[in-house]
């Protein structure tokens, strides 16, 4: 793995440029399959929202827009810091790189923390399908349709949260490697590839936020 003294060059590649190109195509292909993965879930959402518009907008009003909006800001900031981290790596600026990656980690963890508070409050209000959903206290004629909305809410945000968690794990690997000074202007693409993944996770939330939180009747 240290052929000809080039750090990070794997033996199947001729040079780092080829390795970078392969890795980028690999991550884009991975993001493409993620789009289809979430696409199936969004499609399910679209079908049911079309079938039960009232239940969906009632269900949406049970969510707390403030939490959703705050988390949107948090994720947008994290996208900014990850973009800056890529730039810092390209510029050989180790201090900035580590700083921006730590900031990304902070925002990602904040997001998960808020999510935890949200899920707990849903639990207290008996709104988690399959665990403690109780529609009797709802001011809606067909509480089972609201349960369907909540099912989709938990499936979508749960899967998204899982992706944030994976991002946190990757960051926990990237940060020590950055501290060791391994990423340089010639070998920075692991940071860039993580950036691609992270922006994708961010964009999914950008779609989830309006579709889930903002369709409620005020």
């Amino acid at each position: 793995m240290h052929r000809e003294g080039i750090y990070g060059l794997h033996e199947q590649f001729e040079d780092l440029a080829q390795q970078k190109e392969s890795s980028l195509i690999g991550m884009w292909a991975f993001v493409a399959q993620e789009v289809l993965f979430f696409g199936g879930a969004f499609f399910t959402y679209a079908v049911y929202r079309f079938m039960y518009p009232e239940a969906f907008s009632y269900g949406s009003s049970l969510l707390d827009v403030r939490f959703g909006a705050f988390n949107t800001v948090v994720l947008l900031l994290s996208s900014f810091t990850v973009a800056m981290a890529v730039r810092a790596a390209q510029l050989n600026d180790k201090k900035q790189l580590v700083g921006f990656l730590l900031a990304t980690l902070f925002f990602a963890s904040t997001f998960m923390g808020i999510k935890y508070i949200e899920y707990s409050s849903k639990y207290e209000h008996h709104l988690i399908p399959g665990i403690n959903f109780d529609g009797s206290h709802l001011d809606f004629d067909n509480p089972e349709k609201v349960e369907l909305f909540m099912s989709i809410y938990f499936a979508l945000t749960g899967l998204h949260g899982l992706h944030v968690l994976v991002g946190i794990l990757i960051l926990l690997w990237l940060i020590p490697v950055s501290i060791k000074g391994r990423f340089t202007s010639s070998y920075y693409f692991p940071v860039e590839i993580f950036g691609l993944y992270w922006h994708f996770v961010d964009i999914v939330w950008i779609f989830l936020f309006p579709l889930l939180y903002l369709i409620g009747v005020s």
Binding site: V47, A55, G130, I131, N142, L148
Partner: peptide, 17 residues
């Protein structure tokens, strides 16, 4: 999720399709 957790995404009694 439907079967193990009890969500109702494909459950016709909740209006699932």
């Amino acid at each position: 999720l439907d079967r193990a957790v009890g969500l109702g995404i494909f459950n016709p009694t909740l209006g699932g399709d």
